[in-house]
């Protein structure tokens, strides 16, 4: 199986509004994919559909398996720890993950915690947005999954931490695993992306290898991404 993800004719409506329409998307194993698009374009929704947290129509196969329940054991998603009370200590959250996910690697988690400079004796409620995001990243990467979905992992994070997160992604992503990173702010992650998927107009507007964009158009990922929106404006 060389495709870690195969989405077919995926449509999602919420509150009578169509968010995504007839989406087809295939991702190969071992890639780092940038999922780009404006706020509200449907990036998070697409990830939630893949994990099964949102329910749409169409088929989604993860590692060749299209049963939604089975996806959970293949996917590691940056969930925002809403199931925990604010007074829960980080090490207790880690214990929860260790207990519940058979692929949670305690050793890796320790390394990540050290690398990202996280104090596990802190309580969730006491964390800044950036610190909480680092905790979420550490938990997500500590699992040995086939597909990692990182939903805006850099929001609210200072540039030093951002660099560390990017490094930890390169360091700890298993070689045959694919990682999808959503963001609306490209420049800093551009060098680590194999491919770029752009969500626009309720669908996948473009899906290209990032070095192909540089070769074909002679422009950067960010410029390419912005050009899609400028063209859109001219069309209107």
């Amino acid at each position: 199986m060389t495709n870690v993800l195969a989405i077919n004719q995926l449509t999602y409506k919420h509150n009578l509004k169509t968010i995504l329409k007839d989406v087809d998307l295939t991702l190969e194993t071992g890639k780092i994919v940038g999922l780009l698009g404006e706020n509200g374009a449907g990036k998070t929704t697409l990830m939630r559909l893949i994990t099964g947290s949102a329910k749409g129509s169409g088929t989604i196969a993860v590692c060749g398996d299209s049963v939604a329940t089975h996806h959970k054991s293949h996917i590691s998603f940056t969930e925002q720890l809403r199931g925990f009370k604010p007074n829960t200590r980080i090490d207790r959250v880690a214990n929860f993950y260790r207990t519940v996910y058979p692929d949670f690697d305690g050793q890796r988690f320790e390394e990540l915690i050290t690398f990202l400079q996280i104090d596990t004796s802190l309580k969730l409620g006491a964390l800044s947005k950036g610190m909480k995001e680092k905790v979420v990243i550490a938990l997500t990467l500590a699992r040995q999954a086939q597909l990692y979905l990182l939903d805006e992992p850099f929001s609210g994070i200072d540039s030093m931490s951002r660099k560390r997160i990017i490094s930890s992604i390169i360091k700890w992503k298993p070689e045959d695993a694919t990682m999808v990173i959503s963001d609306h702010y490209v420049s800093e992650i551009a060098p680590i992306l194999d491919e770029v998927v752009i969500v626009k107009d309720q669908g996948i507007y473009a899906h290209k290898p990032s070095d192909a964009i540089r070769e074909e158009f002679g422009i950067g990922i960010e410029a390419y991404y912005e050009s899609l929106y400028e063209r859109g404006v001219k069309h209107d």
Binding site: T51, G52, S53, T69, K72, S73, I75, F77, E79, Q80, L81, R82, G83, F84, F96, V100, Y101, P102
Partner: peptide, 15 residues
Amino acid sequence: HVYTRDTYRLIPVGE
């Protein structure tokens, strides 16, 4: 709480 939180709903078990 369990039914609407990813923390629980993403645990690899059936509904």
